Computed example of a mutant assay.
Amino acid sequence: MSTPRFLDLPPGVAPQKIETPQGTFAALEALPVSGVVERWPALLVPGLTGSKEDFIAVLMTLAQSGRRVVAVDLRGQYETAGPDDPAAYTCAALGADVDVLAQVIGGGDPVHLVGHSFGGLVAREAVIDGRTKFASFTLMSSGPAAIEGRRASNGRKILEEVPVLGLEHVWQTKFEPEALANDVSDEIRQFLRRRLLSNSATGLTSMAEQVLSMRDRTDELRQIELPTLVLFGEHDDGWPPETQSEMAARLGAESVVVPGAVHSPAVEAPETTAAALVTFWNAAEKHYLDVRSSAM
């Protein structure tokens, strides 16, 4: 279970509501504290039991590269409302939400897209469906198909117990014991409980079903020919590091292994993660401009 490194928002970061044709999405928006916005924006998509707060530790650094950076709650997550219809929470449906978010945030410019864990599977749908022009795509601690290992058991617990016993039961029997074992502070533990209980129960179970059954779409993603980065912790306990390395090779993508990190590099190694993202984004923009210049 991931926890934000801190809950106080850093300079340049503020809560926002992003209005789209498909509804309103809760977000954290980061702008440069000094300098101006001169580069393409970025959209950050969280994982299954996560939220926009999982990116707090990297937002200011990412924005200081001259960008508007927006982290969102997906439909039905934490502070973004969602319906009781399971069909609203398929990866394809959530990917369509990512499409409209990117179009609104970009305002005509391409957007750098980052998806963490389950958010990577959702963001991949948006890239493959071809509705939106993205500047780059980063799969952060996200694999080619269904999640594996310990985190797969977390997903099964959600899928099996939330519809019958409710979110409070899952908090008390799974997430709270993990937080206590990891010496998570009372303040963050209270936030984690509030966040979990604020989720749509229908949405959470539907998303868990998706992450446990997702098919491999790596070959389809490669055909998009979009600059892609595969970034993961050296001790990832979701998709094994070797699985993510193999996926990067199949994609012809850059691969960054974050030393010491597990499943949440933006939380566990924020400076390393932010530096890797900025370097990748800058290179993707330069490549785009070089290609456009050579075509003229």
Rank of each mutant, 00 (worst) to 15 (best):
P265N: 06
S200T: 09
V211P: 05
D129F: 00
M207D: 04
P41M: 00
T20K: 09
V267N: 13
E254G: 02
A179F: 06
I224G: 07
P46V: 00
P10I: 09
G120C: 09
R222Y: 04
P10F: 13
A30I: 09
G238T: 14
R292I: 11
W281C: 06
L48T: 00
H287C: 02
V257C: 11
T20P: 11
L28P: 02
P240F: 03
A71W: 09
V170E: 14
I158E: 04
D186V: 11
R217I: 00
E234M: 08
L113K: 05
L43E: 02
P177D: 10
E148P: 07
G35Q: 09
M247H: 05
E271T: 14
L139E: 13
S206F: 06
G50T: 01
E29T: 13
K174R: 14
F118S: 02
G12V: 13
R217L: 11
P41D: 01
G143V: 02
T49F: 01
E161T: 11
T90H: 11
E168R: 15
G260S: 10
G47Q: 05
A123N: 05
V114W: 08
I158T: 09
A135W: 05
L9P: 12
V98C: 07
A27F: 02
F175I: 10
L251G: 03
T173F: 08
D129C: 11
V100S: 10
L167C: 12
P144C: 00
L251S: 04
A248P: 12
A14H: 13
V278E: 13
E148C: 12
Q77A: 12
A87V: 07
G95I: 01
Q103F: 01
Q244F: 02
L212T: 06
S198L: 03
P83V: 01
G119Q: 04
G23R: 11
V230A: 00
L62T: 00
S206K: 11
S141Y: 01
A284L: 01
Y89W: 03
D183N: 15
L165E: 14
T20M: 08
S141A: 15
K174N: 13
E176G: 08
T273C: 10
V37S: 03
S142Q: 01
S206N: 07
L192I: 03
P227Q: 01
A208R: 13
